[in-house]
């Protein structure tokens, strides 16, 4: 016979060790927090907390270093991949990650990230795409969708004047040095789980020295989009994903063999 023994209860989820015990400055519902959390979870699960050096960027995530309980340096706007290169070349056995928003990485820092990827720099970039400049109050970013209203495209992004949004993952995926470039979304539990798996793969790519890795995460900015957080999730799913499809854009042959 089968005996069922009911143990009163067990913790099935708790705050990861790699997050500092303090409240963030992010607005309510901002999925920067989700990205932080899954990165911290993976770093805990892989036992990397004491071997990781983060490179913070400029934008809403400027204070990322306040929230992760490991070593951080703070880069000038857009330069995180260059700074990460400097750290990694001196300390090749440490894990070096950058955490950058779309203004930081896809606008002012496009040169640095393209060349870090082209060199096959063995770093991991976490790229948060929320289709606007959050910290400065919701201006047009290189990722702002055609027609999307922002404080610097008050009538909606006019592609005749401001051009089209940049699909950073697709762009970086053309580079030989890039080993793992994927886009994920943080708008529902299933996609968050897939994003976490990608974070894990990216860090495994770095741990094994396979080259440049990047996980783009579609993210919401309820405050600047002028929506409730739950409305913003829906907007992301309906408006952003058609322009920025979730998917694997570059998985080098060596990465394809990884068991994560």
């Amino acid at each position: 016979m089968v005996v069922e023994q009911i143990v009163p209860e067990e913790i099935v989820y708790q705050r990861p060790r790699s997050l500092v015990e303090c409240a963030t400055h992010y607005c309510p519902g901002c999925t920067h927090g989700v990205a932080h959390r899954i990165i911290a979870e993976v770093i805990d699960e892989m036992g990397l907390r004491e071997h990781t050096i983060g490179v913070a960027s400029v934008g809403c995530s400027v204070f990322a270093y306040n929230y992760f309980d490991f070593d951080w340096v703070q880069a000038p706007h857009g330069r995180a991949p260059a700074m990460a290169t400097g750290v990694k070349r001196v300390l090749p056995d440490r894990m070096v990650i950058t955490y950058q928003g779309d203004g930081d990485m896809a606008s002012i820092g496009m040169t640095e990230v393209v060349h870090a990827a082209a060199r096959g720099e063995n770093i991991t970039v976490f790229f948060i795409n929320n289709a606007n400049y959050g910290m400065t109050g919701g201006q047009m970013a290189p990722t702002t969708l055609p027609g999307q209203k922002t404080t610097s495209s008050p009538h909606g992004r006019d592609v005749e004047l401001a051009g089209y949004p940049i699909r950073a993952s697709e762009l970086l995926a053309t580079l030989e040095g890039a080993a793992y470039v994927v886009r994920r979304s943080l708008h529902d539990p299933k996609n968050i789980r897939l994003a976490k798996k990608a974070v894990r793969t990216a860090l495994e790519v770095q741990r094994q020295g396979l080259g440049f890795s990047m996980v783009e995460m579609l993210s919401i900015c309820p405050t600047n989009w002028g929506m409730s957080p739950n409305q913003a999730l829906q907007w992301l799913a309906e408006k952003m994903i058609p322009y920025y499809p979730v998917g694997d854009y570059r998985v080098s042959p060596s990465v394809a063999q990884l068991k994560v």
Partner: peptide, 21 residues
């Protein structure tokens, strides 16, 4: 907890251990 941006939620669950006696 998966969707919480603040890592504010601790989840507890009853555990049922099945064994064949």
């Amino acid at each position: 907890a998966v969707v919480c941006p603040e890592a504010a939620i601790t989840v507890y669950r009853q555990v049922i251990r099945r064994s064949t006696a």
